[in-house]
Simulated assay, not measured.
Amino acid sequence: MAVEPRHITIERRVRYAVLEPHERPATEIWFALHGYNQLAHRFLRYFQPIHTGARCIVAPEGLHRQYIDHESRRVGASWMTSEDRLTDIEDYVGYLDRLHAHILAEESRRRAGGSPPARIVGLGFSQGVHTLCRWLAFGRARIDRAVLWGSTVPPDLELAEHGATLSDADLHLVVGDADEYYDRAAVKAHEARLRGAGVAFTSHRYPGGHHLDAGTLRCLAEPGGTG
């Protein structure tokens, strides 16, 4: 007897964390997509160096939670696995679109008539890089700058179809010189792939491993900053 996997659509609550701006209205909103086995509220600790002025930082949490350490009952979250991956991608793109719309609607209620809209920055770290790229490719949200930190554009994302969208998002690639998951050869291959597809980007390096570097983050957060 054949077993046939099926799906139904349900409503569920999702969790995200926010560093509210010190000044209102927000002039810049960051959507920070965490890496594998991280949690949104803990991930936001790394953004304290740029939590200044009218900058709002929002960290969505991946839809899959699991125990990292059963003895300590430590929990982390992820964006997807290889199991039923296309459904997971569709779900998280829809989730991020809805969260983006929700945050911008909240901000619009605080803005005076005629004031310019907030600048939107999307930053993906590690596994969150693939999530951000697919959100750009398949979602509807406006992202003015995209920062890909510590990973590559997904190999299965067709650049012939989606490369222009990545270029339009003011693409920035960031990697540490000692990143244990993303070595120099992988960086060169990734950049060559993007150049070959005509995707415009700016590269950033820092002396460190697979983590968010405070100095590089500050450079990226400078008005018009390119590091």
Rank of each mutant, 00 (worst) to 15 (best):
M1E: 14
M1R: 15
V3I: 12
P5S: 10
R6D: 15
H7C: 14
R13H: 04
V14D: 13
A17P: 04
E20L: 04
H22K: 08
H22E: 13
H22F: 07
R24E: 10
R24S: 10
A26Q: 04
A26T: 03
T27F: 07
E28G: 03
F31V: 00
F31P: 00
Q38W: 00
L39F: 05
L39Q: 14
A40S: 05
R45I: 01
Y46W: 06
F47V: 04
F47E: 11
P49Y: 08
H51Q: 08
A54D: 10
A54H: 07
A59E: 01
P60H: 05
L63C: 05
Q66V: 11
Y67F: 11
I68Q: 14
D69H: 09
H70P: 00
S72K: 12
R74E: 13
R74K: 13
V75E: 13
G76F: 06
W79E: 09
M80Q: 05
S82C: 07
E83C: 11
D84H: 12
D84T: 08
R85A: 14
T87N: 10
D88T: 15
Y92T: 09
G94Q: 10
R98C: 08
A101C: 07
L104R: 04
E107R: 07
R109K: 09
R111V: 04
G114R: 03
S115H: 03
A118W: 02
A118F: 02
V121R: 08
G122K: 00
G122Y: 00
L123P: 01
G124K: 15
S126I: 08
S126W: 03
S126D: 12
Q127W: 04
V129H: 02
T131A: 13
T131S: 07
A141F: 02
R145Y: 00
S151E: 09
E161I: 12
E161C: 10
A164Y: 04
A164W: 02
T165I: 15
T165K: 11
T165V: 15
T165G: 09
L166M: 07
D170S: 15
H172V: 15
V175C: 14
G176M: 11
G176L: 06
Y182T: 11
D183K: 05
A189P: 00
L194Y: 02
R195S: 12
R195Q: 10
A197K: 04
A197P: 02
A197V: 01
A200R: 13
G209L: 01
G209R: 07
H211M: 13
H211L: 11
L212Q: 02
L212N: 08
A214E: 08
G215Q: 06
G215P: 00
L217P: 01
L220R: 09
A221Y: 13
E222Q: 14
